Computed example of a mutant assay.
Amino acid sequence: MDRTMTRTPCSQRARSSMKIHHLNTGTMCPMGRRLVNGTGGLFQRARMVCHCLLVETGDGLALVDTGIGLGDIAAPDRLGRRWLRQTAPRLDPSETALEQVKALGYSPADVRHVLLTHLDRDHAGGVPDFPHAAIHVHRAEYDMAVQSRPAPPEGRYVTGQWSHGPSWTFYGEAGEDWFGFKGVRALGDKEADILMIPLAGHTLGHCGIAVRSGDTWLLHAGDSYFHHGQLAASPRMPLVLGYFQRRADMDRTQRIANQARLRALKLAHGDRVRIVNSHDPVDYENCRCGTH
Results as ranks from 00 to 15, higher is better:
residue 38 G to N: 01
residue 4 T to L: 11
residue 38 G to W: 00
residue 143 D to S: 10
residue 73 I to V: 01
residue 8 T to E: 05
residue 64 V to Y: 03
residue 16 S to D: 13
residue 178 W to F: 05
residue 193 D to H: 09
residue 245 Q to K: 12
residue 117 T to W: 09
residue 7 R to A: 05
residue 181 F to D: 01
residue 210 A to Y: 00
residue 113 H to Q: 12
residue 190 K to T: 15
residue 151 A to D: 01
residue 199 L to Q: 02
residue 174 A to H: 10
residue 246 R to Q: 07
residue 2 D to W: 14
residue 90 R to K: 10
residue 80 G to F: 11
residue 154 E to S: 06
residue 242 G to P: 03
residue 185 R to N: 03
residue 48 M to P: 00
residue 101 V to E: 10
residue 129 D to Q: 05
residue 232 A to L: 09
residue 210 A to R: 05
residue 211 V to A: 06
residue 156 R to I: 07
residue 230 Q to P: 05
residue 200 A to L: 11
residue 48 M to A: 02
residue 50 C to L: 00
residue 258 N to H: 02
residue 134 A to L: 11
residue 215 D to L: 14
residue 66 T to K: 03
residue 235 P to F: 05
residue 252 R to C: 12
residue 29 C to N: 12
residue 273 V to P: 05
residue 189 D to Y: 09
residue 208 G to F: 02
residue 91 L to N: 03
residue 241 L to N: 06
residue 156 R to L: 05
residue 87 T to L: 15
residue 82 R to E: 11
residue 22 H to F: 11
residue 157 Y to C: 00
residue 158 V to H: 15
residue 99 E to P: 14
residue 261 R to V: 13
residue 139 R to P: 15
residue 123 H to I: 01
residue 121 R to H: 10
residue 284 Y to W: 09
residue 128 P to S: 09
residue 260 A to G: 08
residue 192 A to K: 14
residue 213 S to M: 10
residue 24 N to S: 12
residue 265 L to G: 07
residue 186 A to F: 10
residue 5 M to S: 15
residue 15 R to M: 08
residue 191 E to Y: 04
residue 270 G to H: 02
residue 197 I to W: 12
residue 220 H to S: 10
residue 76 P to T: 04
residue 180 G to F: 09
residue 260 A to V: 10
residue 122 D to T: 03
residue 2 D to P: 11
residue 83 W to A: 12
residue 66 T to A: 08
residue 268 A to P: 11
residue 49 V to Y: 02
residue 158 V to F: 13
residue 128 P to M: 05
residue 217 W to E: 03
residue 120 D to F: 15
residue 175 G to L: 00
residue 267 L to V: 10
residue 45 R to Q: 01
residue 37 N to C: 04
residue 216 T to P: 07
residue 213 S to L: 07
residue 106 Y to I: 08
residue 171 Y to M: 09
residue 101 V to P: 08
